[in-house]
């Protein structure tokens, strides 16, 4: 994609973003713009909803209908928007804290409803904006400013969580795999139903500094080394998965989507109301 085409989607007056040098969030944004351009979505028809944290700043820099919401609630706001205007394409940019800690409840219920939202989880495995604290996604043993001796907590596998909760489309990739990221996001945006894309992204400022991966390239290599393109069911055991996280599109299945079901419900309710008044 050419620079001019790319900038068409950006709010240049809001650049540069607040993101640190070496942060991977810009790569996700670039991939997202590529996917939206590839699908020729009209900017007026796209609503981009963000949560709180570094990823939550995404709505500010992209020229769509944008909403920067509260911590963890982006999916609930987006659910309201989508139900009110099903014809709009609603994309949610969340952090791993948004999705798995404070907003974990909203995440599992959005999956369960299978409402047509594209949820992109910017997973940097740490709380970046607040200064590098432990996240539910921080791998066991890794350090953060609230787990200096290495965390004793096991980390969430967000894709398994999404699969278990019923999302129609579930995928994981990394910013290291830029073209795969574009392809995955394109398919997620095409999917009718709740789609989850977990994008692993480096935070050299906090995760890197706390875990001897100070240089951005070191962190990118870490992401590459920590992941393996593999189907979830092919992973021999939990221990193996902890070592190398599978990536790929784990699920892309069509099932009745929430706003379509709701529209059917309205027709049934109207029919019932008419027949009872006759």
């Amino acid at each position: 994609m050419l620079r001019e085409q790319y900038s068409e989607y950006l709010r240049s007056e809001e650049l540069p973003s607040v993101w640190c040098p070496g942060c991977g969030n810009g790569i996700i944004v670039k991939a997202l713009v590529n996917a939206i351009a590839a699908l020729s979505l009209r900017r007026d028809d796209v609503v981009l909803v963000g949560g709180i944290g570094c990823s939550g700043r995404t709505p500010f820099i992209l020229d769509f209908n944008t909403m920067h919401t509260t911590h963890g609630r982006a999916l609930a706001f987006a659910t309201g928007i989508k139900l009110a205007r099903p014809e709009l394409k609603v994309i949610v940019a969340m952090g791993d804290g948004d999705a798995s800690a404070i907003g974990g409840n909203h995440f599992i219920h959005a999956c369960r409803r299978n409402i047509d939202l594209a949820a992109i989880i910017f997973n940097n495995a740490i709380y970046g904006q607040t200064g590098g604290q432990l996240a539910p996604t921080t791998p066991q043993g890794k350090r953060s400013t609230t787990s200096l001796l290495g965390t004793i907590e096991p980390n969430f596998d967000l894709c398994k969580l999404a699969l278990g909760a019923g999302a129609g489309f579930v995928a994981r990739t990394t910013v290291f795999d830029f073209h795969e990221l574009i392809e995955t996001l394109t398919r997620a945006l095409t999917h009718k139903g709740f789609s989850v894309v977990e994008a692993l992204t480096p935070c050299p400022t906090y995760f890197g500094r706390m875990n001897d991966l100070r240089e951005p390239y070191e962190m990118l290599h870490y992401l590459k080394d920590q992941t393996i393109p593999q189907a979830l069911e092919d992973v021999p055991d939990e221990a193996a998965q902890m070592k190398r996280l599978p990536t790929g599109i784990f699920k892309d299945e069509q099932r009745m989507e929430y706003t379509e079901l709701y529209s059917q419900l309205c027709k049934a309710a109207k029919g019932a109301a008419v027949s009872s008044s006759e």
């Binding site: 919401t69 659910t79 309201g80 909203h106 309205c266």
Partner: peptide, 23 residues
């Protein structure tokens, strides 16, 4: 639903007010 209005029972009250604001 009779008038194509939207009703949704959310997962908690935080989600409820958030969905209301989104709508």
């Amino acid at each position: 639903p009779k008038t194509e209005g939207v009703f949704i029972q959310m997962e908690d009250e935080i989600a409820s007010i958030s969905a209301v604001i989104g709508a």
